[in-house]
Nucleic acid binder design. Sequence first.
DNA 1: TTTTAATATTGCAATATTACGATAAAGATT
DNA 2: AATCTTTATCGTAATATTGCAATATTAAAA
Lengths: 110, 110
Amino acid sequence: MGASKTAHFTQKQNEIAALMKALGHPARVAIIDYLLTVDTCICGDIVNELPLAQPTVSQHLKELKNAGLIKGSIEGNAICYCIDEETFSKFQNFLSEVFGKIKVQKNNCC
Amino acid sequence: MGASKTAHFTQKQNEIAALMKALGHPARVAIIDYLLTVDTCICGDIVNELPLAQPTVSQHLKELKNAGLIKGSIEGNAICYCIDEETFSKFQNFLSEVFGKIKVQKNNCC
DNA sequence: TTTTAATATTGCAATATTACGATAAAGATT
DNA sequence: AATCTTTATCGTAATATTGCAATATTAAAA
């Protein structure tokens, strides 16, 4: 098939999977990395930072934007991108839950 | 194309992306969820918990195993699965870094 | 030893993803 | 206005993913 049966899972599971999927490509991890290192918004500089053609980078940026992980605002003929803290916060909350549960697990048999 | 240009990114970026990708499907998130709720290893029970056919579940388990997120040990004619804490720990460390950097970012313009 | 039960593998169809050249769109510059 | 710059979109090829039926594998049970 190739299409995920999203309807059969909880909304939360689908949400988390979507966030994970958005970060499930090294180029998109690299974009986030870069946005973090520059420590501010970036207006038209991302393409030069990545070893990929401009349309490909644009596509990756679109996916990060769709996932809510970054925000973009038009600044003249360039576009400013930055991390969307709110979504990352949501992400972090989920992960805290998961890691919290892992720590409680004591009776491992594997 | 369809193949990621992994060679052009750092090892860390590729590693993180691989972990994220492994969790980038609701079925695999559901499997982790389930392993966490039962609070112990599970021997032969995962297929019944998911709305997917047995070969499909087996495939998802294989991917989680390849990513190092779960461990499986043979227990008679069943197989015990549980969370691999070490990999999750690695995962958590990366995320702490990211979230740490986000908090430092003050001069947001978006 | 035959059967049963649990999991894995194979093969395949449907769909999604990745990447990029060509082109479009839109604001800035001349 | 004509051009340049920056980003987006379209079209398309190559590859990957998802899902399942059929089948294989392996160990327990009868």
